[in-house]
Design a binder for these strands. Structure first.
Lengths: 334, 334
DNA sequence: TTGTAAGCGTTATCAA
DNA sequence: TTGATAACGCTTACAA
């Protein structure tokens, strides 16, 4: 319709030099009139690029809804991707074995140009595996680490440390931690932050329990801690869900929050501010994290340099689930 | 390597008749040895199929994490899709205008073979729009409706009705409803179920308020209801988040739940059973809904018949946020 | 039952 | 600055 060849159209539509301005506008006008858009499929085949990035989430389908991280993270990824005509391919698989198969298949099919690596585990085989597959990746972790891929990090340690310091300032001395599953890097990171903050306050490391991030797990861990010989006066939880369930469990035992037990969460989920009492928690900018991760991955895929990124630290949101311990005097002298 | 032509390989890998069993195994063996997998891109171009379906979610990125529906729904979709080598393309857009543009672009690019239509609104233009675009769709709604596309429905009405009847049986007469935004079909459906159940119990329709599914919205609506001339003794909420926030708001005013106010939610989110008191709510099989929707869409895309599907009705989960009103006598005689 | 060859709709490499 | 023409790696008639 513009009286030009396919090649000219291709150059015109991709804003590339080598086509006269007049011709270009003529081509664009024709395309608009014909309501013609380049075919994604043909473009992908010809350019050997999928124009798509992948996210594989290994988690039981039923538990996925409980975690505020993924929806927000995905939303962040999307805002970046959409602006560049890229798409997100999402896979939800039940376990680590299927997760590996997913990456294998994704790489073999050429369905994606790169992937996000979340929920990093200790000695995680995935970075090396993806390197072997030649599939670019961006690692989502609490802090930079030795890794063949760029790491986009939000350091959760300052958030946990702030929670501990806040509790210490209130007069707490027996501050416990309910952590996530041992295998995750972020579990270790938060655990270390808790222990480090205690040490910085010249307090001995107190009891901690690993749970599974679920409500039931959080409640059970709480009961275990409260039943111990030296029950805590405050508990720092690794996520809000466990904190909320733990708070309820304590209340059910007749404890008053925060007088008998102070509680802090992690996530600042939508409900955190609307509980009894409202939950003191740690807020991270998960949407921004997703955005940054997507930007990094797109650069990587384009062959551009992509240094490690560390995002602003999380923020402690003070609400009413923390307060001075009822027995400050006793604990001080103990 | 197997000493055959491309065509034979294609037939062998797609389990199609017309290739001798011996040849087929030879081809498959060679493919395995070479670790060769068909290129998704080439297959998509050649077959004029994207082998991908789309889900466009119009929602502010920050609020996406608050809703337990999407993660579970997506997980359900995925379990079906993965088994058939299909993928899910997800887009998160901020508003309805971008949502339309997304569908337009998806259709024009040929990036997907079909889409899911969720959060159906009254007089929703999307079904007709997709029909005009020639992009197959499956509509997710509370009940079958006039529509160019198959509808996969989970009727939420029995769940709401069960909640109302449960409250009536406990002696409640002033049962209010906190609904979602007016524009959604499911909001109207739940509202109608509430009103219908009251009528079935020979009770006049009581007050209802529209909120926005958020915690703040639920709390505010609750306060409005409690401040009214005839405050309710029970409130049926359209989702858990509003119910939890509403429960806290009532407790903050010094009301006891359930003695002074009974509360029911909708979703049975992960935290519902771990609150004080544990929340009576309505549980739907959202994962199963996603699975059924994906099956339907794949049939549709393959040109197969796909009749409307209605899934099993939701289930009322009785916990302790509901109980007899303190003032049964008075209300009975009123 | 198997091989041949023509698409699919782009991008990329050349000549013109 | 533009126009042919060959990839890209499959699927699918059609011929052998």
């Amino acid at each position: 319709m513009a009286g030009v060849s396919k090649g000219a159209v291709s150059f015109a539509l991709n804003d590339r030099p080598g086509v006269a301005e007049a011709t270009r506008t003529r081509i664009l006008a024709a395309a608009a009139e014909l309501r013609w858009t380049p075919s994604h499929r043909a473009r992908a085949l010809s350019s050997s690029r999928a124009l798509t990035v992948g996210l594989v989430v290994a988690r039981a389908p039923e538990t996925l809804g409980a975690d505020p991280f993924f929806p927000a993270f995905i939303a962040g990824i999307e805002t970046t991707l959409a602006a560049r005509g890229q798409a997100l391919l999402l896979q939800v698989v039940p376990d680590q074995a299927s997760e590996r198969r997913s990456y294998d298949a994704l790489a073999a099919n050429g369905r994606v140009d790169g992937v996000f690596l979340t929920d990093l585990r200790l000695d995680d085989p995935r970075p090396a595996m993806l390197e072997a597959l030649g599939l670019p990746a961006v690692v989502i972790a609490p802090s930079p680490l030795e890794c063949p891929w760029p790491v986009v990090a939000t350091d959760d340690r300052p958030g946990i440390a702030a929670a501990v310091h806040h509790l210490v300032a209130l007069g707490h001395r027996r501050i416990a931690h309910v952590a996530g599953p041992v295998e995750f890097v972020h579990t270790r990171s938060r655990h270390a932050a808790w222990a480090g903050a205690l040490a910085a306050s010249a307090l001995d490391e107190f009891s901690s329990v690993h749970a599974d991030f679920s409500a039931a797990g959080g409640a059970e861990a709480t009961v275990r801690l409260l039943d111990s010989a030296a029950p805590p006066t405050a508990i720092v939880y690794a996520n809000d869900l466990m904190a909320i369930a733990g708070m309820s469990a304590a209340q059910t035992r007749g404890l008053h929050v925060p007088d008998d037990l102070s509680v802090t969460g992690f996530d600042d989920s939508a409900i955190a501010g609307h509980l009894r009492p409202p939950l003191t928690t740690v807020r991270t900018d998960v949407v921004g994290w997703g955005r940054a991760a997507a930007e990094c991955l797109l650069r990587l895929v384009d062959g551009l340099a992509c240094p490690d990124v560390t995002l602003p630290p999380p923020e402690l949101v003070l609400r009413s689930s923390t307060g001075p311990p009822r027995t400050t005097r006793e604990t001080d002298s103990a």
